[in-house]
Write a protein that binds this DNA or RNA. Structure first.
Length: 702
DNA sequence: ATAGGGTTAG
C-alpha cells in the first residue's frame, strides 16, 4: 500500500483541487523531500519496500505547478545513486512520465535509452506503461522515426494489444503527420474506446484537417460510439475553423445541457467557436459565466474580438485581464498587437512590445510577425525593420508583412529590394507576397517592375494570379495614367472581374479625369455592387473635375433615389493611450466647440500659407461657402485639430481613417505640417501619408 | 500508475 509509506499525509501540503479526469499524485514541497527521504531511510522502507520507494519517487518527481527542475534532479539522483531497492520498470516509468509532464520529452527519451541499458544489466524490462509514455514523448517532439522504433519494441514485447499502447501510437503517428499509419492502427483496433476515437480526431485536428474532424464526429454519432468532453473540445474548435455554426451550436447546447461547460477547456473551445461563427456576444456571455479563466480562455476571447474587427473591445477585455492574476503569454500578445495594428494604436502597441521584452516572452515567428505588422501598420517602418531584424526565426509571413509595410508606406524600391533578399534567403514567396510586391509597384509608380513581377509570379513560381493580383495590376496601370491599357487588361482577364477591379479603374479615371471610361466602369460595377456609395461618388467627382456639374449632380441624385448613403468618413486618433473617434460634422465630443474653433484657426492659418479650399469632393447641393465649411469639417481635420490641441508642441500626430484621403484634406494637411511644424502620419484605407514640412511621402500620388 | 483536449500573424 502506497499510503503506508508516506510519513504522514498531514505533513504534506494539501494538493490543489484535483482535476476530475486526471490522476493527481501526492506531492511534496521541495523542502519536505529530504525530510521524507530521511524518514524512509531510517525506517529502512526505502530499500526494503519497492512500494515505498516508488511512492516517494512519485511524490518527489510527478509535476504539479510546484514541481521544479530541482525536484526532478533530486529524483534522478536517487534513481542513479541510490540507495534503493532493485530497480524495476516502475521506477523508470515514474521518471519518464515525470519528465514528459514537466515539459522535457527529450530527457524522457534519454531515460528510456538508459532503461534499455539497465535492462541488460539488471533484468529491467520495459512494460506497456514504458512504451505508452515513451511514445507520448516522441509525439511531443515530432520524433516520428524514434516513435517507429519504439513501436518495434512494443511489437517484440507483445504489447500491441494494449489499449494504452495503441492509443498513444495512434496519437503519435497522427500528430507527427503520418495520418495513414495512424489510420491503419485505428482501423485495426477492434474495441475502440473513447480515447481511441479522440486520439484519431486529435490527429486530424493537428494536421489542420478540420473537415475530417467534423466528419469523424458525425461518424461517432452514427455508430453511437462513445464521446466525451475531450471529443467535443476538438470538434467544437473544428466547427469554428470551418464555420459550421449548425453543428457548433448543437455541441454548445448539448454541453450546456449536460453541465459540461464547467470543463474549462470545453468552455474555451466553445467561446472560440461562437466567436469564429460570428456570434461574438454569445461567446462573451459564455466567457463571463466561466468559473475560472486561464490564459488560453482570455486569449480566445481577445482574439475573438480582434478577428471580428472589434478591436477596441479586444483591448478593453485585455485591460480587464490585466486586473487578474492571469499573465498574458505570447499568444495573447499576438492578438493584442493585431488589434493595435488595426486601430493604429501606436502607444498601446508600444506598451505591448515593452511588456513582451520585460517578461521575456518568447519571440516566436508568429509574435515577431505580429510586431512587424503592427509597426508597419502604424507607419513606423523603421521600427518594423528593427523588429524584423531582432527575430531569431522568420518565415514567409514575416517577410510578406514587411514587404507590404514598405509598400503601403510608399517605399516601393525598398520593398522590391526586400523581395530580392527574401529570395536570397531561400524563403518561398506566397500569393500574398506577390500582392505586397504589386502594391509596392503601384504605390511607387513602378510600372515596368510590376509587369515583370506579375509575369514572373506564374512563370517562375507557378502561382496563378487571383482576382486581387489582377486588381493590383489594374491599379498600377490606372494610377500611372495608362487608362486604356488598364481597361484592355480587364477585358483580357481569364477570370470574371469583380467590383474591386472595376473600382480600381474608376478611381484611376477620377484621378486622370477620364469621363468616358469612368462611365463604362460604373456601368460594369453597378450590377456587381449596387449599394457601394464610393462608386457613384468617384464618377460624380470625375464629372466635377472636368466641369460637367450637371452630370455630377445627376449621379448624386441617382444615388439618393436608390437610397444609397455615403459611408461617413471616420478618423481615429490615439492620445495618451486612449483612442478618439471622429466623424465628419461630428458634434458628439464634449469639447466639440473648442475643436471647431481650432479647425477655424487652422484653416485661417493655412490660408495665409496659400491654402485654397478644394471643394471638388464636397456635397453638391449647397453653395460654395457652405461647401468650404463642409470640407473643413471632414473627420480628418477634426481629428488633426484635436491632436494639435491635446499633444505637446512638435509631437507627431498620427491618425487612421476608414476612407481614402480626399484632395482637399491632403493639400490642407501638407500645409498644416508646415505651419504648425508637426509631422502628421495619416493611414488611409490604402496606404500611408507621412506629412512633413509641407510635403507628403506619397508625392501626391495616391 | 498508464492514452486523447482549447487560444496566435501576412
Amino acid at each position: 500500500m502506497a499510503t503506508a509509506v508516506v510519513v504522514s499525509a498531514a505533513a504534506l501540503p494539501a494538493a490543489p483541487s484535483p482535476s476530475p479526469v486526471r490522476y493527481t499524485p501526492r506531492r511534496a514541497a521541495l523542502r519536505d523531500v529530504p525530510q521524507l527521504h530521511a524518514a524512509l531511510l531510517k525506517s529502512g522502507e526505502l530499500t526494503t519496500s519497492p512500494e515505498s520507494f516508488h511512492s516517494f519517487l512519485e511524490a518527489t518527481a510527478l509535476p504539479s505547478s510546484a514541481t521544479t527542475a530541482a525536484h526532478l534532479a533530486y529524483a534522478i539522483r536517487l534513481l542513479r545513486l541510490g540507495p534503493h531497492p532493485p530497480l524495476s520498470a516502475r521506477s523508470y516509468n515514474i521518471l519518464i512520465r515525470a519528465f514528459f509532464r514537466a515539459g522535457h520529452p527529450e530527457d524522457a527519451l534519454h531515460l528510456f535509452v538508459e532503461m534499455l541499458g539497465a535492462a541488460i544489466a539488471a533484468n529491467v524490462c520495459p512494460d506497456q506503461h514504458t512504451i505508452a509514455n515513451t511514445v507520448k514523448s516522441c509525439a511531443r517532439i515530432y520524433a516520428l522515426a524514434t516513435g517507429r522504433s519504439v513501436q518495434a519494441y512494443a511489437v517484440k514485447l507483445g504489447f500491441m494489444a494494449d489499449q494504452f499502447v495503441l492509443n498513444s501510437l495512434i496519437h503519435m503517428y497522427a500528430s507527427c503527420g503520418d495520418i495513414v499509419a495512424a489510420k491503419v492502427l485505428f482501423n485495426a483496433v477492434e474495441e475502440k474506446g473513447v480515447v481511441t476515437w479522440n486520439a484519431m480526431i486529435a490527429g486530424y485536428f493537428k494536421n489542420g484537417d478540420w473537415k475530417e474532424v467534423v466528419e469523424m464526429f458525425k461518424g461517432i454519432l452514427e455508430v453511437q460510439a462513445p464521446f466525451d468532453e475531450v471529443t467535443l473540445v476538438s470538434v467544437a474548435t473544428a466547427c469554428g475553423k470551418i464555420g459550421d455554426s449548425k453543428l457548433g451550436e448543437r455541441i454548445g447546447d448539448y454541453a450546456e445541457e449536460k453541465g459540461m461547460v464547467r470543463n474549462r477547456n470545453l468552455a474555451t473551445a466553445l467561446v472560440d467557436m461562437y466567436a469564429k461563427c460570428g456570434q461574438l456576444d454569445k461567446a462573451r456571455r459564455l466567457f463571463d459565466r466561466m468559473h475560472s479563466r486561464d490564459v488560453v480562455a482570455w486569449s480566445a476571447m481577445i482574439s475573438g474580438y480582434t478577428q471580428a474587427d472589434r478591436c477596441r473591445e479586444a483591448l478593453a477585455i485585455f485591460n480587464k485581464m490585466q486586473a487578474t492574476e492571469v499573465n498574458p503569454n505570447d499568444v495573447t500578445m499576438v492578438s493584442v498587437l493585431s488589434a493595435c495594428a488595426v486601430l493604429g494604436a501606436l502607444e498601446t502597441g508600444k506598451w505591448a512590445h515593452s511588456y513582451i521584452r520585460r517578461k521575456a516572452l518568447p519571440l516566436t515567428v508568429v509574435l515577431g510577425t505580429a510586431l512587424v505588422d503592427f509597426y508597419a501598420k502604424c507607419g513606423c517602418i523603421e521600427d518594423a525593420v528593427k523588429a524584423f531584424e531582432s527575430m531569431p526565426m522568420r518565415n514567409s509571413w514575416t517577410w510578406t508583412a514587411l514587404i507590404k509595410g514598405m509598400a503601403s508606406n510608399g517605399r516601393g524600391r525598398e520593398a522590391l529590394e526586400l523581395f530580392s533578399s527574401m529570395r536570397e534567403a531561400n524563403i518561398e514567396p506566397t500569393d500574398v507576397t506577390f500582392i505586397g510586391v504589386l502594391l509596392a509597384c503601384s504605390h511607387s509608380c513602378l510600372v515596368e517592375e510590376g509587369r515583370r513581377h506579375f509575369d514572373s509570379m506564374t512563370q517562375d513560381y507557378g502561382i496563378h494570379p487571383s482576382i486581387e493580383h489582377y486588381g493590383c495590376m489594374v491599379d498600377l496601370l490606372g494610377r500611372a495614367g495608362l487608362i486604356d491599357e488598364a481597361h484592355r487588361f480587364i477585358r483580357n482577364m481569364p477570370i470574371e472581374p469583380n467590383a474591386v477591379v472595376w473600382r480600381a479603374l474608376l478611381s484611376a479615371c477620377t484621378v486622370h479625369k477620364n469621363v468616358e471610361i469612368g462611365e463604362e466602369a460604373l456601368k460594369q460595377i453597378t450590377p456587381l455592387d449596387p449599394n457601394h456609395s464610393g462608386n457613384y461618388i468617384l464618377l460624380s467627382n470625375t464629372y466635377a473635375s472636368v466641369g460637367q456639374w450637371k452630370d455630377a449632380a445627376m449621379i448624386r441624385k441617382e444615388m439618393n433615389e436608390r437610397g444609397i448613403k455615403k459611408i461617413p468618413g471616420c478618423s481615429l486618433i490615439e492620445l495618451d493611450g486612449t483612442i478618439f473617434e471622429f466623424f465628419a460634422e461630428d458634434s458628439d465630443h464634449p469639447q466639440s466647440r473648442e475643436i471647431y474653433e481650432k479647425v477655424d484657426e487652422m484653416i485661417e492659418n493655412i490660408k495665409m500659407a496659400g491654402y485654397v479650399p478644394n471643394t471638388a469632393d464636397a456635397r453638391l447641393d449647397v453653395d460654395e461657402s457652405e461647401k468650404q465649411v463642409s470640407v473643413s469639417h471632414h473627420s480628418e481635420k477634426l481629428a488633426i485639430a484635436f491632436g494639435l490641441m491635446k499633444s505637446r508642441p512638435g509631437a507627431t500626430i498620427r491618425l487612421s481613417k476608414n476612407l481614402r484621403v480626399c484632395v482637399d484634406c491632403h493639400a490642407a494637411t501638407k500645409l498644416i505640417s508646415k505651419v504648425y511644424n508637426r509631422e502628421i502620419v495619416v493611414r488611409d484605407r490604402n496606404r500611408f501619408h507621412h506629412f512633413k514640412d509641407g510635403l507628403c511621402s506619397c508625392n501626391d500620388y495616391w
